[in-house]
């Protein structure tokens, strides 16, 4: 078997002496989709921040050398004092803020189309996009420049089901067409069943890790979300 693209060993994180993550270990193979699940406050987003080296941690995180990460945050366009247009938002990623760069704007249009957005959206203000549009714009932003790993922090709410469904199809398509390795924080276990090659359940510490069909047992889910969790596995 090839070398995993990511190996995480005994990673712990504490804020103010409070342990937020404890001894988390897992690995991800190239081209796989890893779903990270757990209740609110389980440390899922913290784990992403650690993986991108935003915050200090104990333990070992080893990305393969050629890794290039694209990141889709959970929420983004908070009311901003900057009247940024969608075009300008993308141009921030290029070296030229004030000069036109034909090649760059071509690749922006290309990525917009690949996430199902009309390039006409470029002249809109970022703050005026719908939630579904911003989600797609964020994905386009993340995949601009061809990363080989995508970290996707799924929004808990705000995107309608139809929209959600296509976002997952989109991620799936990207995985197939571009060979992207995808790490997704998900709140929907059905989605995990359908799209993930492996699942990591955490609630501060690791509850389970492996193929979803094997790991998402009633017992693990109970342990993860508590006794009251209701879960129906739909095929």
């Amino acid at each position: 078997m090839a070398e995993p693209i990511l190996k995480v060993k005994d990673v712990s994180v504490s804020f103010d002496n409070q342990e937020v993550l404890k001894d988390i270990s897992f690995s991800v193979n190239e081209g796989d989709v890893l779903a990270i699940v757990g209740p609110n406050g389980a440390g899922k987003s913290v784990l992403f921040r650690v993986l991108m080296d935003f915050i200090p941690y104990d333990g070992e995180i080893k990305w393969r050398n050629d890794v290039k990460i694209g990141y889709v945050p959970q929420k983004f366009f908070e009311k901003s004092e900057l009247p940024l247009t969608v075009r300008e938002f993308f141009v921030l990623k290029s070296k030229n803020l004030f000069f036109k760069d034909k090649k760059f704007s071509d690749s922006v249009s290309h990525e917009l189309k690949s996430v199902g957005l009309d390039p006409e959206i470029l002249d809109k203000q970022l703050a005026h996009l719908s939630k579904g549009q911003s989600q797609r714009a964020l994905i386009a932003w993340a995949i601009l420049g061809h990363p080989n790993v995508l970290l996707f922090d799924e929004p808990t709410a705000g995107i309608d089901l139809a929209g959600e469904d296509t976002i997952y199809n989109l991620l799936h398509k990207m995985k197939d067409e571009r060979g992207l390795t995808v790490l997704i924080i998900s709140h929907d276990l059905n989605v995990v069943y359908r799209y993930a090659d492996s699942v990591l359940c955490i609630n501060k510490e690791r509850i389970c890790f492996g193929p979803p069909k094997r790991e998402l047992t009633g017992e693990n889910i109970k342990q993860l979300y508590g006794e009251s969790a209701f879960y129906q596995h739909g095929h």
Binding site: R49, M52, F54, I69, G70, Y71, P73, F76, S80, E81, L82, L84, E88, F89, L92, K93, L97, F98, L126, W141, A142, L151
Partner: peptide, 17 residues
């Protein structure tokens, strides 16, 4: 400007890039 703007609009995205 470019760095400042992205740092203001989305610090995490800035770091990720």
């Amino acid at each position: 400007s470019r760095r400042l703007t992205i740092g203001i609009v989305a610090p995490d995205l800035a770091k990720s890039a």
